[in-house]
Design a protein around this nucleic acid. Sequence first.
DNA 1: GTGGTCTAGACCACG
DNA 2: GTGGTCTAGACCACC
Lengths: 127, 127, 127, 127
Amino acid sequence: MYIKLTPDDPRPQYQQVIDEIKALIARGDLPEGTILPSVRQVAADLGVNLNTIAAAYRALQDEGLLDVRHGRGAVVRSRTTATHNEGQLRTPLRTALTQLVLAGMPRAEIMRLVSDELAGLFKRVKS
Amino acid sequence: MYIKLTPDDPRPQYQQVIDEIKALIARGDLPEGTILPSVRQVAADLGVNLNTIAAAYRALQDEGLLDVRHGRGAVVRSRTTATHNEGQLRTPLRTALTQLVLAGMPRAEIMRLVSDELAGLFKRVKS
Amino acid sequence: MYIKLTPDDPRPQYQQVIDEIKALIARGDLPEGTILPSVRQVAADLGVNLNTIAAAYRALQDEGLLDVRHGRGAVVRSRTTATHNEGQLRTPLRTALTQLVLAGMPRAEIMRLVSDELAGLFKRVKS
Amino acid sequence: MYIKLTPDDPRPQYQQVIDEIKALIARGDLPEGTILPSVRQVAADLGVNLNTIAAAYRALQDEGLLDVRHGRGAVVRSRTTATHNEGQLRTPLRTALTQLVLAGMPRAEIMRLVSDELAGLFKRVKS
DNA sequence: GTGGTCTAGACCACG
DNA sequence: GTGGTCTAGACCACC
């Protein structure tokens, strides 16, 4: 599982881990049932504190994306069980788009950028 | 000026205020030269502390979106000075889109959602 | 008396006025005994509030650079009466130089810049 | 880290802290990678409120001089990202020099003073 | 009137 | 342990 931390990223480390794993799942690189490497393994690989990875796994479990069982490791769950509110999804999208607009990017180019990103996310996914 | 705070929003209050004002500016609801309501006014309206709003105004000034002057209030500036890195804009967009994909939203519907949001942002903008 | 206010200057208006008048005196454009235009006159010229100019004149009087008498106007005093502490003079100089160093300007170029500025200030002055 | 607050200084406390730390960095006393004492530590040392120091650290982070990370402390960054306008640097220098001229200090002595200050700033700097 | 600064103290989030 | 956010309230500075 290829995860990378960016030191200059303003997000906390555990959030970067969460977002990277989410991206891997969304992209289909971690299909349902995949067993993730252990907390200790990832922590060692990234050279960060064990608690940081544990917090990320727990957050992903709380979101319904992982099934973490004592002594069994963390398993990727089906994406249908995740529960979301529309607002919780729409707000970050609006914020991101607002920044692009304020940066002066024209509408057409923003659409192209979104399309590009989506292409990457839907590459190997069936749905 | 219609600003609303969402208690369940994970962002701190001052960040919510920042993002809402940015959206208002991007949407053209606060054209260049508009005088924003006073720090105390907004704080009273939202039922939060004065310092919380002051922090938001100061951050917007640091970003070059507002011109805040002692004793005179905060004025919306022209949107020319913004200097951004592509990456700093692209990361939140990717994160937001990932969330939508994980929620099971089909590609076409995501594109529609983005288009909707952009329509709102470009409605009354001159440029 | 040629004074100009810069809108984007972070200093408050009254401080800009103070600094400009000081520069005029230092440069010798306002020799001892010169009668400054009235507060009302300057305020009208610059299009600012009367209190702003009055505050500037009062500050200059407090520093011993002006002699403001009721009904007589403001007169430039001899520069020898000004009372200064070494520290009060040295601190802003150190701060300004620190910024130049942090900006990466080499020592020789800073010296050249200082020399240039001093040339302007000592142009028409005897001492 | 030796920081001192001057009660009579017209600058706000947090600004004094900013300027002192900048001077320490410029002088090379805080080389890249140095971990600054914690916000609480400095606040206790100087006998001021925690928020005052936090504001200073945040400002230095915004200027790109510090890398402040949640739970990890503040680290001195490399001095490469700084972007400055000539005017923003020149104005405070001119103001400081004007004060010296008004104090009656002769040109040669001002040059000597500047040279002294620069010697201190360039003492232990590598670049 | 406006915004700016500071305090004292609380509680939360990150590692 | 670290920094981040927020409150309540005070006082100062600018226009």
